[in-house]
Design a protein around this nucleic acid. Structure first.
Lengths: 120, 120
DNA sequence: TCTTGACTTGGACTACAGTCCAGGTTGTAC
DNA sequence: GTACAACCTGGACTGTAGTCCAAGTCAAGA
């Protein structure tokens, strides 16, 4: 798969794919002409990498995870530990957003009351 | 209230308080010696500003909100509209984090199974 | 009066995550 | 064999949100 196809598959831009590679998050094979050649395994890894990123993991931590992954199955317990730590973070985020939503709704209710009061 | 007291009250650093002022998000009175002098109204506004920021509103949008606020009660409907738009965003974030948590838990379950399989 | 510590300013610097660009290469279609 | 799109590289540039620093000011206490 070329970088263009990969971009379409993953929803990332080509720039991002090159950037993540430069940062050591993805290792990409090359064809005879020196062009990037992605496979299905890369698609899966990029999808997971994106999920980690969307959940607020910094690229440098994803890089640590990628390093462990490169070292094979023996690092699975370490990777599991990273994911468990991250789960705690994500669970807290979820609670936080729920709280934010509640407070924002209170504020909106207050504004609505103020405005309808002004109109009378 | 001096900037140091204000920092303690709001949990922000002095740097941030100066930075937000420089960006036009807060208007702070000065004492005779040219020092910042905050009041309770400032504390409340900063607390609300922080909530907007924590929920992902960019400083330039908070600035727009602050501009409306400066113009008085007549801008309440506009502010309400901003908050309602933002509520949609926050609600979506909450759903997103719930989804992320679910997927991450699936991955963790998978890893746990893999690891216990290796051990047998 | 002198020291101390909290404060003032503008501007330079940082971290993070990209994005863009010039100049060059490769592979396919006509 | 040439036009063309898609690709390559390194490095400069961007936006967002700060953080830090030098040089100076101000007020209270010894």
């Amino acid at each position: 798969m070329t970088i263009g196809e990969m971009a379409r598959r993953t929803g990332l831009t080509e720039s991002k794919l090159r950037y993540y590679e430069k940062k050591g998050l993805i290792h990409v094979a090359r064809d005879g002409g020196g062009r990037r050649s992605y496979d299905e395994g890369d698609v899966e890894w990029v999808a997971f990498l994106c999920r980690l990123k969307e959940t607020g993991m910094l690229l440098r931590d994803i890089w640590r995870y990628a390093q462990l992954r490169d070292r094979g199955r023996s690092t699975m317990p370490e990777r599991l530990a990273m994911l468990e730590t991250h789960r705690g973070y994500v669970a807290e985020q979820q609670r936080k957003w729920a709280g934010h939503l509640k407070k924002l709704e209170d504020k909106i209710t207050f504004y609505q009351a103020e405005i309808s009061h002004s109109e009378t």
